[in-house]
Every structure is written in structure tokens, then in C-alpha cells.
Amino acid sequence: MRPPAALRVYFLRHVQVALNSLGRLYRAPLASLMTAAVIGIALALPSGLYILTDNLQRLGSQWDGGANLSLFLRHDVSIEQAEALREKLAQWPEIERLRLITPQEALAEFRQLSGFGDTLDILDENPLPAVLALKPAAEATRPEAAAALKQRLQALPQVELAQLDLQWVKRFNALVDIVQRAIWILSALLALAVLLITGNTIRLEIQNRREEIEITKLIGATGAFIRRPFLYSGLWYGFGGALLAALLLALAFVQLNAPVRELAGLYESSFRLHLLEPGQWLLLLLCGALLGLVGAWIAVSRHLATIEPG
């Protein structure tokens, strides 16, 4: 255990080194900004694509009728029984909302939409069954969950046929899946790029400060003492890059928001572009800082050991 005073000195030292490293970057603003900008672009790209797919998914879930289920009831089910079933199903958590379409309503709708009005008059009785149109809750729209829900509904005695527009849901989700996987690959590659950028920048900095490193080693500096400023530099590069990435995303958002609203308005949709949650912004900054730190660590562990005073 360190005594508290020593611990305080230790933390104070870290704060000092962190600020010194920041000051060093500030004194070479153009070079620092360029490194941070490259990191920023590398971080903004996958983040932007993530936001894009996130919005696509939101759009998909907003799309009424997309993942709808229709329950065609048996002919011998009366209106009262159908109404009772509706009330029962309304209690299910997997179902967000449902509506009962009586045979009369269905016939009226059909008459209006099909144009077979006169022909229908020939029929003695209404051939159409009562239908429960229901919309699954958000968590039940994934293909497997939606299929499972369909199975359960099909098993109900009053139900003749449960029909799910599954193809559409499946295709859409498969597409989003592919895009998301591509984003993961891209993210991994760009994270690697960030590591290389910071690593290389820190390597150059180590070379520039070779004399200083040798002298401090001569005077009895530990490896940790010598590493520290370089690690903080890497941390700041990554953090600065993430800040720039956030700025780029916000700018892109501002550019896209108005046209998207307009388009949504034309479709009479209330859809709005959605940026990141506060926690996700934080995650972006954290990832940037961490990548910078790891990149610096790689450079430091490869290049510092080779510098020995002679």
C-alpha cells in the first residue's frame, strides 16, 4: 500500500504529464490537427454508417403493415367470440395492437376496393371470414420471434389461418444484417488504421526526442516515466480524433436532416433522422482515446527499448 500522500503525488504527476503532452500537441497545432483529422475521418466513417443502418431499422419498424399478421377466423366463430378473442390477445405482450375486422366490414371494404359490387349482391351469404389484424410488438418483429408468434396464433382453436408477411421482414432484416456485418469489418479495418496512424506519429515523436529520452534514462528515469508522455500523446490524438469525428457526424446530420424531413413529409411519415444516444457519443470518445492509447503503446514498446544511452 502506498501512503496517501505518495498516492496523491502520483496522480498529480499523471495530471501534469497529461497536460504537458496536451501542451506539446498545442504547440504544433497544424501537425497535431492533421493527425487528429485523419483519425477523426477514420472514426466518423463507421460511426456514420452505423447511424445510417440504425435509422434504416427505425424506418423499417415504423413501416406499418411491414410485419403485420392476419388471423383469419373460422366461419363458425361468432362476432361475440371473435370480440372475446381480440380482448384476450390484447393482453399478450408480443402484440402491440390489433383490430377486429368483421365479415360485414370486410365485405364493405372489398366491395369498395374491388369494384365487384354488383356481382357480390348475387351471393346469398357473406363468404368472408372475420379477421384479426395485428401488429407484433417491436421485440417480436425479428424473423424468428415473428414466426414463433405466428405458430402460437395458428394453434388457437378459433383460427383458421395465421398469415405473416414474413418474406418482407426476413429480406429487410437480412439486408440490414449484411450491411451491419460490413460495417463491423470496415470498423475493424479503420480501427487498425487508427492504431497505425497514432503508432507512426508517436514513433516519429520518439525519434525527435531521442536525446531527451537518453538523458532522462541516464539520470535514472524508469521505463514507465519515459513511456508516460508518449502514451498520453496517443491518448490525446485519439480523443481529439473522436471529437472531430463527432463534429463531422453532427455536420453531416445538419446537412441531411432537412431534406430527410421533407421526404418523410411527402410520404406523410413522421420519420426523423436519429443521431447517437448520449451513451453512444461517450463510447465514440472512449473508443478514440483507447485506440490512440493502444497505438502509442505499440510504438512505445517497439521503439523506446532500442534507445539506450551510450
Binding site: E211, I219, G220
Partner: peptide, 29 residues
């Protein structure tokens, strides 16, 4: 490093840090 801290070393070419003040150079150890 701990051994080196017991030794004050002086060099022919001084080996000072030229981007820091005299005070900061002396403060380094």
C-alpha cells in the same frame, strides 16, 4: 534506474535539454 539515481553524472558535452530552462533541466532528477 534506482542505481543511477545514486549517481550524479557529468558529461563532457553537458547533455542538457535545450528546449527547457535551466530550472527545468536541474529539476529533472
Amino acid at each position: 534506474p534506482l542505481v543511477r539515481r545514486k549517481i550524479g553524472m557529468i558529461f563532457q558535452n553537458y547533455r542538457l535539454l535545450f528546449d527547457r530552462t535551466v530550472f527545468d533541466n536541474v529539476a529533472l532528477p
